[in-house]
């Protein structure tokens, strides 16, 4: 298992290189790339901030669960923080397994739980610079009025 959160560019190749692949018939890779648009507005980058220590520990729990529940052989998760320009990779999840089905399911589970539970926040930098959770909260408040 390899987990890293760091403030420098990341690549798919390094995640794949960290995987233990002995006896595996499959590797599955997910890479999250910053889009040039968020919420209908152009952005030049996303700024990521995390809770050091807690974020890494929560990802470790998520990957441990996936290794147990989906019987995968290994997983690597690398997340970039700081300013990530549009078009560049912000997160990579790589999974090795004996069969592809478990690999696909595990990879999806890992990225879904990471996105919805791990303390990592993003700020949209562009036409309007704003924390994404703030924009979503404002949108909910407008809906309720």
């Amino acid at each position: 298992m390899f987990i890293e959160i760091r403030n420098s560019p990341i690549s798919e190749e390094e995640a794949l290189a960290k995987l233990e692949k002995g006896g595996c018939g499959s590797t599955v890779l997910f890479s999250g790339i910053v889009r040039p648009e968020e919420g209908g507005r152009r952005i030049s980058a996303l700024h990521y901030e995390h809770y050091p220590g807690m974020a890494e520990r929560m990802i470790t729990v998520i990957v441990t669960d996936a290794m147990k529940n989906f019987r995968i052989s290994d997983a690597a998760v690398i997340h970039r923080t700081g300013d990530v320009p549009a078009g560049e990779i912000s997160v990579v999840v790589a999974v090795s397994s004996e069969r592809r089905k478990e690999g696909f399911r595990a990879c999806e589970e890992i990225i879904d739980r990471l996105k919805t539970t791990v303390p990592i926040w993003k700020k949209e930098i562009g036409e309007v610079t704003q924390w994404q959770s703030e924009r979503l909260q404002q949108r909910e408040e407008r809906k309720q009025k």
Binding site: Y51, M54, D112, K115, K122, S133
Partner: peptide, 27 residues
């Protein structure tokens, strides 16, 4: 560094963090 419900008691020396909802992301 553990998510805490409102009824959790805080002891002297505990480190408490107030955090915005996590960013998520549409799949």
């Amino acid at each position: 560094e553990e998510i805490a419900a409102d009824d959790m008691r805080i002891k002297n020396g505990d480190v408490v963090a107030a955090m915005p909802p996590v960013s998520g992301g549409r799949c």
